[in-house]
């Protein structure tokens, strides 16, 4: 059962990283960030369910704050440039 949880954690991390790297939209990139952090949480809980609860709670809250601030930045960028397409927004994509 723990091996399956580790596999799910790795799958969530890979899916999130793929969405971050290949996504063309800011919202899709932030969904990738969320999925990658979920993979990290699955890893924590699969390793030590009762002992890692405090860390998991703090990570969930910090992740919510990070996503909130990044969504605020996305709205600000949309107000500034009129698009959420990463190809049009900047040069940090490939």
């Amino acid at each position: 059962m723990t091996a399956l949880a580790y596999g799910a954690a790795l799958a969530l991390l890979v899916i999130g990283l793929a969405s971050i790297v290949a996504g063309r939209n800011v919202v899709k990139t932030l969904i990738g960030v969320e999925l990658a952090s979920k993979g990290v949480l699955v890893n924590f809980v699969a390793t030590d369910p009762a002992g890692s609860q405090g860390i998991v709670v703090l990570l969930i809250l910090i992740d919510a704050i990070v996503v909130a601030v990044l969504l605020g930045v996305a709205v600000a960028a949309y107000r500034q440039y009129g698009t959420l397409d990463l190809e049009a927004l900047g040069r940090l994509t490939w």
Partner: peptide, 8 residues
């Protein structure tokens, strides 16, 4: 991990 479940 019930409290982590509630927070999630």
């Amino acid at each position: 991990a019930p409290i982590a479940a509630v927070f999630e």
